[in-house]
């Protein structure tokens, strides 16, 4: 499903990703953990091409981009459509209602029929528990509700893979559960997901695999139980002792 080979990302002098290799099978949920600045966000953004990798090859479903050679601007949008991105700070469109936020992609990008898009958008919002908030503007919604709209907006484009960048870390603790529940439901439906989060509960209950990143490389990977209870690497141990 996803295959990353030799992914490097450099910002000016700073090398943030130092050769990431990763395979994710269809329907699997991968949780990425690691200290601040280790490159977790950058890796997700490279998958969504919000950052252009310095080098490496990314393969998703039946498409691939080889960043070892120059790529044309036109290759990016179709590739980007394979992944849906959920941001830490939601990034909803503040001038659109929840429904309009979800409809925007299919209407503007896919140019689908508006009525059909509306029906599907209502279904999606109902699925994330916001069927009664269709016409609310983002500022009228709580953080948890906004993030669920964000998930519905990404799902509306029917991505093959969902990417989550600390989707609950900006939320008040009592709102975290409702977002995680939506994500677990998605996982159970067989969505392929890459999730950066420090919610151990989510990792234990929903992840097929946990990756520990530090200093721009993947230090260790394995089943959640294995990583959390008996990490092999010293750095993983240190990190886990800090957050648990």
């Amino acid at each position: 499903m996803i295959s990353i080979k030799g992914l490097h990302k450099q910002f000016d002098q700073l090398e943030v990703l130092k050769g990431i290799d990763l395979e994710v099978e269809k329907g699997k949920v991968v949780v990425v953990i690691g200290p601040s600045g280790s490159g977790k966000t950058t890796m997700l953004r490279c998958l969504n091409i919000l950052e252009t990798p310095t080098s490496g090859v990314i393969h998703i479903e039946d498409q691939s981009l080889d960043f070892n050679k120059p790529i044309s601007k036109r290759e990016i949008p179709p590739f980007r459509r394979l992944t849906g991105m959920v941001f830490q700070s939601y990034n909803l469109f503040p001038h659109m209602t929840a429904l309009e936020n979800v409809m925007e992609g299919p209407v503007t990008v896919k140019k689908n029929n508006k009525e059909e898009v509306r029906k599907k958008a209502v279904q999606l919002l109902t699925k994330v528990g916001l069927g009664d908030k269709l016409d609310y503007y983002p500022f009228q919604l709580s953080g948890g509700q906004q993030q669920r709209v964000g998930i519905a907006r990404a799902l509306a484009m029917e991505p093959k893979v969902m990417l989550f960048d600390e989707p609950t870390s900006a939320l008040d603790p009592e709102l975290v559960g409702e977002v995680l529940k939506v994500m677990k439901d998605l996982a159970n439906e067989g969505m392929t997901m890459v999730v950066v989060t420090h919610e151990m509960r989510f990792a234990k209950e929903a992840a097929d695999e946990v990756l520990f990143m530090d200093g721009g490389v993947i230090i260790e990977r394995g089943k959640p139980e294995a990583i959390f209870s008996s990490p092999k690497e010293e750095r993983t141990k240190q990190f886990l002792s800090l957050i648990q």
Binding site: N48, F87, V109, K110, R153, A154, A156
Partner: peptide, 11 residues
């Protein structure tokens, strides 16, 4: 983030 949200849904 608004630009990125737009790009991320394929705009």
């Amino acid at each position: 983030g608004q630009w990125e949200a737009g790009y991320s849904i394929g705009m």
